[in-house]
């Protein structure tokens, strides 16, 4: 059974997913960061595959993508680094990457590699639902890879229902009209959107991402969903870390207070 399904069967609240960009801050930090995220008590590890043109991302993640590419990160290298990680990591692992590098690698080869190394799911922000269903769903299914769709405050109820129907892991709720990036607070409009979607009683669990940065925003988001995803704020922790493992665990423990 896919680890994402197992997780949400046993844990319905306060699920914490942590995003980092592979190859940042240093090329070979991937496994060390994954171990520290697991030791720090997170529930899902989301690994970003760096891309030259990440249109859905704000300055912090753009910057980490650029540094990772300059460091020499590539899809091939990432899969090399991920070989054997399952001997140490039990958490569900999701790759987040833009479509073009995946297509150049080959979608089927990519899904196959994900299965081989033990990746559970994918988030491909610029792969729309219809294209996924028409062109790629069969491959995802064949290799047991869970696909994750995004919704935003602008997504219509009808489309949210369609996305729910075609998802079987979790739904990624983009918290506001925004690209990624840590924000100070959650607004009443956002709360109204969280409540509106919560009331729809979707079959899939929902994680809220974009703008979640600290214990307060995490708790707020988790109140209206099954948990939250932290990306930019975590990248800042990595950027400033003196002791990578210690600082990661310290930050993650701080989120639960």
């Amino acid at each position: 059974m896919n680890r994402i399904h197992t997780l949400f069967q046993t844990k319905k609240e306060n699920v914490l997913s942590i995003y980092f960009t592979a190859g940042f801050p240093k090329l070979d930090d991937t496994l060390a960061i994954m171990e520290a995220i697991q030791a720090g008590g997170a529930d899902i590890i989301e690994i970003g595959v760096p891309y030259s043109d990440p249109v859905a991302d704000g300055p912090t993640i753009q910057d980490s993508n650029k540094i990772a590419l300059d460091n020499g990160m590539s899809m091939k290298l990432l899969f090399e680094q991920l070989k054997g990680f399952r001997s140490k990591i039990q958490l569900p692992v999701v790759l987040m990457g833009y479509l073009n590098p995946i297509l150049q690698f080959g979608m089927e080869e990519f899904c196959k590699k994900c299965q081989e190394v033990g990746v559970d799911g994918l988030i491909v922000p610029d792969l729309p639902m219809q294209q996924y269903l028409d062109d790629y769903k069969a491959m995802f299914d064949q290799y047991g890879i869970v696909n994750t769709f995004l919704i935003s405050p602008q997504t219509s109820e009808k489309r949210i229902r369609e996305i729910d129907e075609n998802s079987d892991g979790f739904i990624y709720m983009v918290s506001s009209h925004a690209i990624t990036g840590a924000k100070a607070d959650i607004s009443p409009e956002q709360v109204a959107y969280f409540e509106r979607v919560a009331a729809m009683e979707l079959k899939n669990p929902r994680l809220i991402g974009f703008g979640i940065s600290d214990a307060k925003t995490f708790a707020q988001a988790a109140q209206y969903s099954n948990g939250a995803i932290i990306g930019s704020a975590f990248i800042k922790v990595l950027k400033n870390a003196a002791d990578l493992s210690g600082d990661i665990q310290g930050y993650l423990k701080g989120l639960k207070n």
Binding site: A56, L99, D126, P128, Q131, L150, Q154, T155, S156, V174
Partner: peptide, 9 residues
């Protein structure tokens, strides 16, 4: 139209 869902509407 390979766009993030946020641009779909």
């Amino acid at each position: 139209a390979y766009i993030p869902e946020m641009l779909y509407p």
